[in-house]
Design a binder for these strands. Structure first.
Lengths: 243, 243
DNA sequence: CGGCAAATTGACACATCTCAAAGCCTGTGG
DNA sequence: CCACAGGCTTTGAGATGTGTCAATTTGCCG
């Protein structure tokens, strides 16, 4: 019913919310929906009247390749607290779809409420803008990882990022988290073949850095894993400052 | 002196600017600066008081790799009309630097003027936001290209994108443009070794799709090149609509 | 003309892909 | 409780893509 506390925590980690900002956020009317694994949350191309926020589970931005309908590329993952398709509010339409990875619960916010925020709450508007810029910074980091890391180091980087983001909103701790991704989906994310992903997973296991059974991931050696991935969380921009 | 017409053209291609928006843009005070090839336009990490708009030339977002000071990854290119580091206005600081590729001329806009826009010009604010979201869409497309295209097709995609963006603001036409990139820099962009980039360039030349001499690129066979790259410009979101 | 940086080429090593097959887990029906 | 089916994971082997190193050529500029 009420807007997810995850998103408020996401913002408060980066800036101070005034009483007005906070009450405007809490006054948002939202529609709660759940999705089964693989279901489309936001379809491609359609101009939507609402944007969605992650409440529970994991979702992915999925790009269909032209002329190769069986192939796709995943360009982003979203965790609880992420305001996933704010893009759809400002742009003409999404060039990709958002799909559920594992079971997902989201809250939809209508665009007329977002218009109201941008017309009357400039500080809050900058914070929404910030959220989309952090997504862009994550995209850049994926580009850096793709260009500079090979297989298991690349996978290690993904695991470090997801854990850090989940931990930041209180959705994971103790170096454990749930990652309901098939190896085929991991391959769509990392740009490898499923077979190669399998070897990367085994490599990290053999090095004693992680355990991964079903959807349950545990990072046994954070120092080793983040070192291998050359992971540096500053791009997630979790610095507390006035914006 | 006056704000670059390129940026206004960039916006007008996507939405209608009201008289107020237009006069606010034209009233911006800017500082004009030029940079030699390789110079740093926006340094990493520093919290800046101004953001820069491309007026002439080409610039790149350059990521230094931790522990490997001689290596870098380029995650974006910017052409005339691009408002390059709006990110620095909203975020705590850039995790990368912006460097000149070839000779560059930019206009700096102070952040207090951007604050004024976000406080008093909500529609213009959404358009600035849109500009950063288009950058993010370009990042995603680079991720898709990196995951799904090999060498010469990947290079072809870059050429199609840059030409389309230059053409959209009137900075190039007739399938010719200037791309003052060294093959070593192309390698930093595509995530290949310089030798492999060389082979990709030769391949496109041998197929009769392009000529490339010094900084001058000419696309001889747009259909073939964009087909090889599976290039589809819709992600550049150049649809005219109200936002 | 000489010097330097960039572009180009060749040979070989390593990374990753494809195809094929085997092993594992889980849900279902007998 | 067992047998089976189906999807996912794991493994192996050979083909293709890409990186590294070394050397040569080209083009620009003093």
């Amino acid at each position: 019913m009420a807007i997810t506390d995850y998103f408020i925590r996401y913002l408060q980690r980066r800036d101070t919310l005034s009483a007005e900002d906070l009450s405007r956020l809490r006054a948002l009317r939202t529609e709660n929906e759940t999705f089964a694994p693989g279901e489309v949350i936001v379809p491609v191309d359609r101009i939507a009247q609402r944007s969605c926020m992650m409440l529970r589970g994991l979702s992915a931005r999925s790009h269909q390749l032209v002329g190769r309908p069986e192939e796709r590329v995943i360009t982003a993952l979203h965790v609880p607290g992420d305001f996933v398709d704010l893009h759809g509010f400002v742009l003409a339409g999404l060039e990709h779809s958002v799909v559920a990875v594992g079971p997902v619960e989201v809250e939809f916010v209508s665009h007329d409420q977002l218009i109201d925020i941008t017309e009357n709450f400039p500080h809050l508007t900058r914070l929404l803008w910030m959220a989309t810029l952090i997504d862009a910074a994550v995209h850049r980091q994926w580009l850096v990882a793709a260009a500079s890391l090979r297989s298991s180091a690349h996978l290690a980087h993904l695991l470090c990022e997801i854990y850090t983001r989940l931990n930041a909103v209180g959705a994971a701790g103790d170096h454990r988290f749930s990652l309901p991704l098939l190896q085929r989906e991991l391959a769509d994310i990392l740009g490898y073949s499923p077979i190669h992903v399998n070897r990367a997973v085994r490599d990290l296991r053999d090095r004693g850095m992680i355990t991964w059974s079903g959807a349950d991931v545990k990072i046994l050696d954070w120092t080793g894993l983040s070192g291998l991935a050359r992971f540096d969380a500053t791009y997630l921009d979790m610095e507390q400052m006035s914006r």
